[in-house]
Computed example of a mutant assay.
Amino acid sequence: MKLSYIVEVDPLVHSGIIKKINNQIRIWKGMGHVVQILVLWPKASTTDSIKYIEGDYISNKFLDKLPQGFLNTYATKIIGIKKVESALRVFQPDVVYIRQGIWYPGLTSVLKRYRTIMELNTVDFLEMEFYSGLKKNVYLWGKNRILASISGLVAVTPDILKHYKDLAIPQKVVSNGIDLRKFEVRSNTDSTPSVNLVFVGSENMYWHGLDKILELANLLPEYQFNIVGYDRKNIESPITDNVKFYGWLSAQELSAVYSKSNLGIGSFGNYHVGKNTDSTLKVLEYLAHGLPVLMGHQDVDFHDSDFVFKATDKDHNFLPISIIKSFIENNKNRRINPTEIEQVDSSNKERERLAFFEAVAKDVPPTANNF
């Protein structure tokens, strides 16, 4: 197939989203498909900075000189969509793929010309409550216009897809995957007797549940909690002595933290955005490094495993601390073998996605989800 990927993600930041997109594209090409990558983002075409995704970069020279932010990004999309349209007209893809995002003038007229499939990663109307009023109102106003212009939906969890059951287009759950070839499971390099738990997140993501993680650290003072992606100066709540903030780390620095960790910590606030069952890239990365995980939601792929543990009840309160401590003690010296998590290898997930693409491209009813 000829596949066009419209990427509305910052190519200058080596984020988990960029890693996922690169993985998808690599596998699609490896399976013999021709992929066009259209990166629509401020400074994409004018900066000399390192770009973490290859493709055709689309931005505006004038806007690229102005302060960056929501309005600049939005204007870049409005102006750049014409170049996207021209590129698609020349390439003539069988399927256009785009991640769930905000409506802007010109977008829907382009999407409706092709077999467009949109990837859903969040319960959007709940997540929008955490954004500015302007962004929220524009997003919600344009949401149905985008949905009326596409041919299929792929969601990472059933908790997301259930909100679209009345939409009469093909739909599929394909949870997140990770390229296991890139990871080496190593023995713990920490020479001290301490038990280290690591959380990797980003500031201003309320659904990560940092408040719950800090509460857990207070309940478990005998364990060390290492927080990556947050700066201590931005945390207003009291912090116990067993919590260390690392801020933003490079991939090499983060790998060093993983090598000294015993367990990973997943998000504890996903219920704020309507996801009691989820598939998150951070959990997959922990597992790929060999770390057992405790978190506040069910995992799509590992809800029955003995190395991924939901540490909260149905009301999102912590289970008895003795039960949580038992999981930590039983798994603190464990390293997860790649064969135990091979179902989330990217190659397996992308085969599912590509089969759905082919069904949509050929108007063949897709098979039912196994979720």
Rank of each mutant, 00 (worst) to 15 (best):
N369K: 12
V173G: 10
L66Y: 13
G55Q: 02
I235Q: 10
Y5F: 15
A251F: 14
F91P: 00
N188G: 10
L161A: 05
L354C: 11
N276G: 09
N330F: 06
Q36W: 03
K51F: 06
D10Y: 06
D179G: 02
D166T: 05
F318Q: 01
K325A: 08
P365R: 15
K82N: 14
S259V: 04
N204C: 12
D299Q: 05
E350I: 10
D313P: 01
S202P: 01
S326N: 11
F62H: 06
E8L: 15
E350K: 09
K65L: 13
E85T: 13
L180Y: 06
G133E: 10
L216H: 11
R232N: 10
T108Q: 03
E85L: 10
D159C: 03
N369Q: 12
W41D: 02
P158R: 06
G16D: 09
H303R: 14
L249V: 00
K19G: 01
K162S: 03
E358A: 10
L107H: 00
E215P: 02
F302L: 03
S109G: 07
E54K: 09
A256T: 10
G247Q: 00
N176Q: 08
L220K: 08
L210P: 13
G101S: 04
N369G: 09
E358M: 06
D299G: 02
G290R: 12
Q171N: 05
E329H: 05
Y164M: 00
Y5W: 15
K136E: 01
N330R: 13
K349A: 09
V273S: 05
W207I: 09
E358P: 04
F356W: 10
M1Y: 11
S86C: 08
V198N: 00
K275M: 15
T312V: 14
I178W: 07
W141F: 13
F371M: 12
I160T: 00
T192H: 04
A368P: 06
L88C: 05
K83V: 09
Q224S: 08
I53R: 01
F327T: 12
V9A: 11
K51M: 06
K77M: 11
N176A: 08
L319Y: 03
I328M: 05
R351E: 09
K19I: 07
Y258K: 08
I18V: 13
N144F: 04
T280K: 07
